[in-house]
Amino acid sequence: MKPVKWFATTACVLILSACAGTPQLTQKPVEIPVHEIAKYWLPEVSGFSYGSAPRQPGTVIVRYLVDSEGDIYDVEIVKSTPEGLWDGVVRKSLRNTTFTPSPLNKARVPVKVTAQYDFSG
């Protein structure tokens, strides 16, 4: 491959991969509790299997960004009890979730969501 062609190809790949990892924001995100998400975004969860889930009950409080394209970014575990036990389940679930704008969200307003997940074990 000629050096110029190789450089152009490499540059395109780097630019595209950088774009894929950056949230798309049409405006500043609005902070909301999870029970208000349907006012802005409707979840689409693709199925997944976690394997053997922990047998102990637990709670995970997580905060994440739904950008203007309905993709999830900046997943942050705020609190986890017992620490770390259910974090993987929550993270995997969020990786398999995308959102479509609700009829009320024609402007595709991005949101920062705080949610609590309780597990019975």
Rank of each mutant, 00 (worst) to 15 (best):
C12A: 15
V13D: 03
V13S: 07
V13K: 05
L16A: 12
A18E: 08
A18C: 13
A18K: 05
A18S: 15
A18M: 09
A20V: 07
A20C: 11
G21E: 12
G21A: 13
T22R: 14
T22G: 00
P23F: 04
P23Y: 01
Q24I: 13
T26W: 10
T26N: 15
T26C: 09
K28L: 12
P29Q: 01
V30M: 14
E31W: 06
E31D: 15
E31P: 08
E31A: 14
P33R: 10
P33V: 09
V34T: 03
V34E: 09
H35M: 07
E36Y: 11
E36W: 08
I37D: 04
A38P: 00
K39H: 12
L42D: 01
L42H: 11
P43W: 04
V45W: 08
S46F: 04
S46H: 14
G47R: 12
F48Q: 03
F48S: 09
S49G: 14
Y50P: 06
G51L: 13
G51F: 12
A53P: 04
R55A: 14
R55Q: 14
R55H: 11
Q56I: 15
Q56H: 10
P57W: 09
G58R: 05
T59F: 02
V60E: 06
V60W: 08
I61M: 07
R63L: 02
Y64H: 09
Y64W: 09
Y64N: 05
L65N: 03
L65S: 08
V66N: 00
V66R: 00
S68M: 04
S68Q: 06
S68K: 06
G70E: 03
G70K: 07
I72D: 04
I72C: 02
Y73T: 05
Y73H: 15
D74W: 10
D74V: 02
I77T: 10
I77F: 07
V78I: 15
V78Y: 08
K79W: 02
S80N: 06
S80G: 06
T81G: 00
T81M: 12
T81R: 12
T81Y: 12
P82R: 01
P82Y: 06
E83P: 00
E83K: 13
G84Y: 04
G84Q: 10
W86I: 01
D87Q: 05
D87C: 07
G88C: 06
V89I: 15
V89D: 04
R91A: 07
K92C: 01
S93Y: 12
L94M: 03
L94A: 08
R95F: 12
T98E: 07
T98W: 04
T98C: 08
T98N: 10
F99Y: 15
F99W: 10
F99H: 13
T100Y: 03
T100R: 15
P101H: 12
L104A: 13
R108D: 00
V109Q: 15
